[in-house]
């Protein structure tokens, strides 16, 4: 594991009857945080992004602290057109629009874009920005297959930052470095992918099936899973 940038020590966060506990180190690379609905993934993502403080324990940073959290709804939108919105991210507006694949729609009202297009614009702005930590909470929500592929490729090109992907949709992943699992509010580091995959108790059906068939997985990305499926004996 690379030099950690974020260290969570004895972190406890209570929400009514629910308690989240986490001890972890997040270094550079792409982390996948998975777990059942309601297990505390989003709460941990919010703590990492600095939204709310833990009730006890500490979250320490070894460096910069430019954080961006992409939530399941487009809360970042603050202007009316594509051009204005791209410009409002204080980055290269032209690059954001080009990356989002919205060239030619610069003056289109954001309300006239599809949900997927707005999502792409938001993701392009985030992933072309300068952040030390990017937390992507369900980044594929509401996207079609083509847009999912586009998001995968964009995330893959950002392995030099800390990217935490929170998702229980494991069919469209980019290349994953570290696997984390949240179970009933407890954060567990499963380890480096693909070495840790054999110990993944809550693995999705496809991964379990491939393991049952004796296929060695090289990773969790869509391409790696497709390649593994092709190696099913018989």
């Amino acid at each position: 594991m690379n030099t950690p940038l974020i260290r969570l020590t004895g972190v406890i966060r209570k929400k009514g009857a629910f308690t989240l506990k986490a001890d972890a180190e997040f270094g550079t690379g792409i982390h996948l945080l998975t777990g059942r609905v309601g297990s505390g993934k989003t709460t941990l993502g919010e703590l990492l992004a600095g939204i709310g403080e833990p009730d006890s324990g500490t979250i320490r940073w070894n460096g910069g602290r430019r954080v961006m959290l992409l939530q399941d709804t487009s809360y970042h939108i603050s202007t009316m057109t594509v051009q204005e919105e791209a410009g409002s991210w204080h980055g290269d507006a032209e690059r954001i629009i080009r990356t989002a694949g919205l060239t030619g729609k610069e003056h289109t009202d954001l309300l006239r874009l599809s949900r997927g297009e707005v999502r792409r614009l938001e993701l392009a702005a985030i992933l072309t920005g300068q952040y030390d930590l990017i937390v992507l909470d369900e980044p594929w929500a509401g996207l079609d297959e083509e847009a999912r592929r586009w998001v995968r490729q964009l995330i893959d090109s950002h392995a030099h930052e800390i990217i935490v992907i929170i998702s229980h949709d494991l069919t469209s992943l980019p290349h994953i470095d570290q696997l984390w699992e949240m179970e009933c509010g407890r954060l567990k580091r499963l380890g480096q992918v693909p070495a840790c995959l054999s110990e993944w108790t809550l693995a999705p059906p496809l991964v379990r099936y491939l393991q049952l068939k004796g296929v060695q997985l090289s990773g969790l990305s869509r391409e790696e899973l497709e390649e593994a499926v092709c190696r099913i004996p018989g």
Binding site: Y75, H76, W89
Partner: peptide, 15 residues
């Protein structure tokens, strides 16, 4: 809840 979320999102965005 939305107001809270928007406020956080805009702060992170620098708006």
């Amino acid at each position: 809840r939305e107001t809270d979320r928007i406020s956080i999102a805009l702060r992170q965005k620098g708006t």
